[in-house]
């Protein structure tokens, strides 16, 4: 049987708006995933360290402060440096479509803006993690 998907939901930076992160964490848990909620005010280094220690399949960042163009690339960079490129980096927040495209080019996964459906992000994480697990196995 497939291992349940493990996800770290984290809030990098100084932003304290945790409504979205908590709602998403609850939805992923109810969809059968194992969810670790990292809490507030985490540095990119601490988030990556936690992701590696907890052996997660995906990291979801919630950023509403406008600092996403700094924080997503930093977390991605630390994941790569830790040899954890296979961990899916996704997330959401107040992020314009243009910025989402730029982040995608840096290797960040799909990002979810205001009005996104929980069902859609559950579906995305399930499919993307399954694809990455298969790729890792055949590699």
């Amino acid at each position: 049987m497939e291992q349940p998907i493990r996800v770290l939901v984290a809030k990098p930076g100084l932003d304290g708006h945790d409504r979205g992160a908590k709602v998403v964490a609850a939805a992923l848990r109810d969809a059968g995933m194992e969810v670790i909620y990292g809490g507030l005010h985490q540095t990119p280094e601490a988030i990556v360290q936690m992701a590696v220690q907890e052996d997660v399949d995906a990291v979801g960042l919630s950023i509403l402060s406008g600092a996403h163009m700094t924080l997503f690339p930093k977390v991605k960079e630390h994941l790569n440096r830790a040899g954890a490129e296979s961990i899916l980096l996704t997330g959401g927040g107040i992020i314009s479509a243009g910025d989402m495209d730029k982040l995608e080019k840096l290797g960040v996964g799909q990002l979810f803006g205001p009005g996104s459906r929980l069902a859609d992000l559950v579906d995305y994480i399930e499919k993307e993690v399954a694809r990455r697990r298969t790729a890792t196995r055949s590699a």
Partner: peptide, 16 residues
């Protein structure tokens, strides 16, 4: 309570 040059301020100065 951080100044603009603090390490925790990177990327957040003047954003919101």
């Amino acid at each position: 309570g951080y100044d603009a040059d603090h390490e925790h301020s990177v990327g957040e100065v003047g954003r919101c």
